[in-house]
Amino acid sequence: MAIACSTSASADKPEYLDSNHHAEAQFFNPEQPVNHAGGLWAGLKILWDFTFNKPKDAAPSTSPTVLPLTSEALSALADNQFVRLGHSTLLFKLNHRFWLTDPVFAERASPLSWAGPKRFHASPISLDDLPSIEAVIISHDHYDHLDKGAIVALAQKTKRFIVPLGVGGLLQAWGVAAEQVIELDWHETHEMAGVKLTATPAQHFSGRSLTDKNVRLWASWVIKTSTVSLFFSGDTGYFEGFKRIGERYGPFDVTFVETGAYDPRWADIHMLPEQSVQAHVDLQGRWMMPIHNGTFDLAMHAWTEPFERALQAAAKYQVAITTPLMGEPVAILAPHAGSFWWREAVQEAVAITE
């Protein structure tokens, strides 16, 4: 059942008594607890690597090509199409209305405006030029998925914000009206304008500071109309839940699956590319769109590696992958393969230095 705001014992510590993955004021992964092996020492080692051992190709030396979008171009966009704006930010046109996932338009995926992962490229369209949005769909509260500045701006042109349990309170603290926010637990559905939005499980965690660990839920999303069926992974490690989602809600015309910011040390919360392709297979997807890559430097791998490894795994399992440019429209029921735009960015950078 969708709720406009959480029912709780207190404003700061909701109980969510009906949720079987919430206890002692925190959400948890019921099937596969997140591995914190190594504790503080492991965390410090990762921080050291991020600070001193970053590979030079973790970020592009020149900005990748982006196809600029205008409000006029979006107005003319045919129904049942999508455009990737960056990272996990996707704009869909469904039932002649626009739907937006995990909107991040900030220069940095960080609580600080002057430090933290910086964008490789500008968004194909500015917040001001976006059309009216039927709903913004949020997967979880991390900075590379939930941008406060974007939410504040979008509140003026968005009918509803569809979010996992607990995220609604954060949005309301930022000035979003309570009646604009719909909170869902896993397997709850909200339908509007002929689109069914269902929160589904993910293997992840949440928190925006040292004091709010896992107080808000994380989710993947099933998005369905009478003609199309989509899956949006948010952030997640690989887990058996993908098979159950596929059995219950699939097949899917396109799966938008996290493929980036991974490392064997945190594979339980961010899939390796080969696992991303396996998740797509489990979900019974037709076409796969690798997301969570190409915009921010959030791991130790080369920025082009997620695409290359995903393509290799897709070829092995005969999975159809689409890799459009940022800003390039794709028809949901007839996707195109896209291009190797990341390779072109590397070649262009080499040519500049020669």
Score class of each variant (00 low, 15 high):
S123H: 04
F161R: 09
L146Y: 06
H142G: 04
I162E: 07
A122P: 00
P164H: 00
H142A: 11
E134M: 13
D147H: 08
A153T: 11
F120Y: 15
D129G: 02
K148C: 04
D144R: 03
H140C: 11
I151L: 14
F161P: 14
G168L: 01
D147V: 11
S123P: 01
T158P: 03
S126F: 07
A122T: 03
L130Q: 04
V136N: 10
H121L: 12
P131Y: 14
T158N: 07
P164V: 00
H145A: 13
D129S: 12
P124A: 11
E134Y: 03
H140A: 07
H140L: 04
L165A: 12
L130Y: 05
A122G: 03
I138G: 05
V163Y: 05
G149V: 07
P131Q: 15
P164C: 01
G149A: 15
L146N: 07
G168S: 02
P131H: 14
A155R: 15
F120E: 03
R160K: 15
K118G: 01
G168N: 01
R119W: 01
I137F: 08
T158C: 14
D129F: 06
F161E: 12
I151F: 09
I138Q: 13
A135Q: 09
F161I: 13
D147Q: 13
G149N: 14
R119N: 05
R119D: 00
A122I: 02
I138S: 13
L130N: 04
G166E: 02
A122Q: 12
K118P: 00
H142S: 11
F120G: 05
S123M: 13
A150P: 00
G166K: 00
P124Q: 08
S123W: 01
L130F: 09
L127V: 09
A155S: 15
A150S: 15
E134F: 02
I151N: 07
D141F: 06
V167D: 04
G166S: 00
K159C: 05
A150F: 02
G149Q: 13
H145S: 13
V152R: 12
S139P: 04
P124H: 07
H142Q: 13
G166W: 00
R160C: 05
H121D: 01
S126D: 03
L146S: 09
K148E: 13
I125N: 06
H145R: 05
L146K: 08
L130T: 03
V167Q: 10
D141W: 04
F120T: 08
I133N: 10
F120N: 06
S139D: 10
Y143N: 07
K148Y: 02
K159Q: 15
D128V: 07
G166F: 01
L154E: 04
S126V: 08
L127I: 15
Y143D: 06
L130M: 10
D129K: 13
K118M: 08
H142I: 14
G166Y: 01
K157C: 07
E134C: 08
D147W: 06
D141L: 09
G168H: 00
P164D: 03
H142R: 07
V136H: 12
F120A: 08
D141Y: 09
P164G: 01
S139V: 09
V152P: 00
G166R: 01
L127G: 04
I133V: 11
S139Q: 04
P131M: 15
L154H: 03
I137Q: 08
A135I: 07
Q156D: 09
D141N: 15
H121S: 11
Y143M: 05
H142W: 11
V163P: 11
S123C: 12
K159T: 14
F120C: 10
